[in-house]
Design a protein around this nucleic acid. Sequence first.
DNA 1: TTGAAAGCGCTAACAG
DNA 2: CTGTTAGCGCTTTCAA
Lengths: 344, 344
Amino acid sequence: MSDIGIKQLAKNLGISTASVSRALSNPDRVSTAMRKRVQTAAKLAGYRPNKMGASLRTSKTRNIIVIIPDISDTFNSGVIRSLERTAANRGYSVLFGDTQGIRELEITYGDMVQTRQADGIICFSHRLPFTDEDMASDSFKMPPLVNSCEYIDAAQAGGHIVPLVTIDNVKASRELTQHLIDLGHIDIAVITGDISSPSTTQRLQGYQQAMLSSGLPVQQQLIYEGTYTLEAGSTITKEILLAKKRPTAIFCMCDETALGCLYALKEHNFSIPNDISVVGFDDIKFAQYFSPALTTIAQPVAEIGQQCVEVLIDIIDGKEIKKPMVVLPHRLVIRDSTGPRPDR
Amino acid sequence: MSDIGIKQLAKNLGISTASVSRALSNPDRVSTAMRKRVQTAAKLAGYRPNKMGASLRTSKTRNIIVIIPDISDTFNSGVIRSLERTAANRGYSVLFGDTQGIRELEITYGDMVQTRQADGIICFSHRLPFTDEDMASDSFKMPPLVNSCEYIDAAQAGGHIVPLVTIDNVKASRELTQHLIDLGHIDIAVITGDISSPSTTQRLQGYQQAMLSSGLPVQQQLIYEGTYTLEAGSTITKEILLAKKRPTAIFCMCDETALGCLYALKEHNFSIPNDISVVGFDDIKFAQYFSPALTTIAQPVAEIGQQCVEVLIDIIDGKEIKKPMVVLPHRLVIRDSTGPRPDR
DNA sequence: TTGAAAGCGCTAACAG
DNA sequence: CTGTTAGCGCTTTCAA
């Protein structure tokens, strides 16, 4: 516990610092006797390696920086948890950068690989965390980076391949919409996320595909632009209820929005799903406890987090990435918030 | 953007590395001319300081490690968000260690100050993240550490003062219970958190104080040991409903538990608050969207996070801590899940 | 105000 | 298998 270093340890044992270092970090490179001797002495002396020294020497921090718009978003925090666990198992620590969607903060955090505070980046945004200026420079080297859930446009990435871990949002959304169509719904409103977010665009595509392939019209006035928040769900639902022609189903592009939606509906005495059906997206842990329990798309939160880290570490280790895009399976979870289209 | 160092920069300018370092890190220690010259050159060359070098030299990482049982807990993730923002503003990065309550992981993360990966610790657990062995050693030095929300027993801390940022759990719980009593409730069940957690113990105390001071008996069979989870809320509520003598109110020691409770109640066709009143604790963002909207204690999430960081940095900076315990104000939020005791 | 030089603690050639 | 030695990039005395 005393603040002893490798040097002191070596002196105490009458051996070289190299041997101490090896015995501790590359045990198979020294004799059994040496290994034992050093390891016991180290334990006895309460030796704790100073990682900064090693980092400086090896140019590896064993840190990963996670750049995320909102740590406290329920879906995100599930992924984060898995991320952190996987990283820890692989000997990495996780630094968090909550950006609140602010560009400057994204860039600050994106810079942490350059300043050697982290070896790689996991990014939950659809924008790369670098200035256009930096990216334009021909000396620009893309640091190890994995994109989670939000697709970064290749054009924006300037031709760089940005590995992505995600589900098939289009397909998932199509299935969810189809479920509603199968129940007889025709007028299906949508509360989207931020329209600049690819996940929203893709979910919208899925919705449109499902409608069209069932011969149903895509009614633009039923598409409401929102955000992935409770508030948006509540506010926009009220707007929907005010519309001249009411939909019989509402597709919320995330579960938090769906909860806000359910809330507004109940506040105005609508019965769900008798009057209006509601679906969400994500299957956050609360979804099954909503009243009514929410029909939604379950995303494999744990696997997303795990894969992000695995892929990132592969890149850091300079391994060839076979798949620049990992698409994980989702699952349609039918609960009690959806029912047949009411007769009018 | 090219990988240039302070050395190269100095050479290019025909000056010493010391001047470059000073111009960049201690601008007031050099002449205006020098400062300008270096700063322009640095920007032009796309110089990015290698923080590892500085860290090794100064023995400061500017990292804080946050040790927390569950990052994805909604209450925690709110605090975390604020934590991270405050730290960033103060020039610190935040490392996260999710322990799942596992002792070994706590210790691994607690060790990160020793191994110079962080300068201080914010701990959400009621246990110190060090081995008993370490703590017993007389060479043990307590690293900068702040405890959040959970009180660490002085005895356990071996006489060390462990600064704490929290609300007054006893008082909050008393007020919440009193609210129920004021509504005429006499048989008030409690679903606790983990009984080893001080926050639970304190909330239980508050409950008992309120009962006693109103001349109401504390009925042991109404105190159900649970955890701060949705599942506990749901499972234990069913148990409560099965009891011979049913309570008319249920005090859940966290909002997630309360949601599980509401769920179970509705599943069994109880009307809230007509048949049974329910209260939670924390006021997570979902609470007002529950149906019915939840009566609860609002904790000042943002301030808790902020204060934790402020106090910790003070300790890191070697400042005298005036207050080893920061108690932040809570607020009783009365919504729709509580009502008068039903006639029987 | 600036420069020279000495390390922070560790790892990794290279020799032996 | 082990020791010698040279730094990683930065800050910080100390001297000029």
